[in-house]
């Protein structure tokens, strides 16, 4: 039960000719298609699953473009309406010398999503070729992506709360812009993309780089 952070040969269910359920961890013979315990669909460890990853990755990326191009918030302050895109908001904040918040917004809304795209793409590209040696760092990347993915939705919630709360007649009112939906979709797609990624691929050796059909 030690914590073996560094590489050591482990027998995977796949290598043992078995299929592990990704849902409950129960191990089944190789050709089973459904987990007998939890009823989940059993997926063989295969790069074929990467297709879903890529599909959602592209979808997320496409959604990310309007999410940045369109305004996220329409702010109406004393009659002057301003549409702020994510990047515009950051520039505004810098203009107001709110470097702290600007940095937070920049990191949370721009860096992290982009890093996520890069990370998922990297993992998806790399798992097909790489050796087992890369396994552990890749797992860390994967875990970070999966963990951070949900938290990107914070932006959408912030927009929702601001829009619902700041309704002070003509003094100040905030309405969500189309980018909010695009951003939410983008986050959702990246989440699906990351979920679709089969982390077992990280540990799969090069020798089984093609689906082991007997």
């Amino acid at each position: 039960m030690g914590r073996h952070r560094h590489e050591k040969a482990y027998l995977t269910a796949h290598d043992a000719g078995l299929t592990g359920c990704r849902q409950c961890g129960k191990v089944w013979p190789k050709d089973s298609t459904q987990c007998g315990r939890c009823g989940a669909h059993l997926q063989p460890v295969s790069t074929a699953s990467l297709q879903r990853v890529w599909a959602c990755w592209w979808a997320g990326l496409f959604c990310y473009i309007p999410a940045n191009a369109y305004p996220m918030l329409r702010t109406n302050m004393l009659g002057s309406e301003s549409n702020s895109t994510i990047m515009g908001g950051v520039i505004d904040l810098v203009g107001h010398h709110n470097y702290g918040i600007a940095l937070i917004v920049f990191v949370a809304s721009i860096c992290i999503p982009i890093a996520k795209f890069i990370a998922v793409a990297y993992l998806a590209l790399v798992v097909g070729k790489d050796k087992r040696a890369g396994g552990h760092p890749h797992l860390v990347i994967y875990e970070i992506v999966e963990f951070v993915g949900r938290w990107s939705m914070v932006d959408v919630f912030v927009v929702a709360i601001l829009s619902a709360l700041v309704q002070l007649g003509a003094i100040a009112s905030i309405h969500p812009g189309p980018a909010a939906a695009a951003f939410a979709l983008s986050v959702a797609f990246t989440m699906i993309s990351a979920q679709s990624f089969d982390p077992r691929l990280i540990w799969r050796g090069p020798k089984v780089s093609s689906p082991p059909h007997d």
Partner: peptide
């Protein structure tokens, strides 16, 4: 080793280790 009894093992959902 194809004779392993599936019931005696569990696979890590993340890394597939038996």
């Amino acid at each position: 080793n194809t004779t392993l009894d599936p019931a005696a093992y569990l696979a890590c959902p993340h890394c597939d280790t038996l």
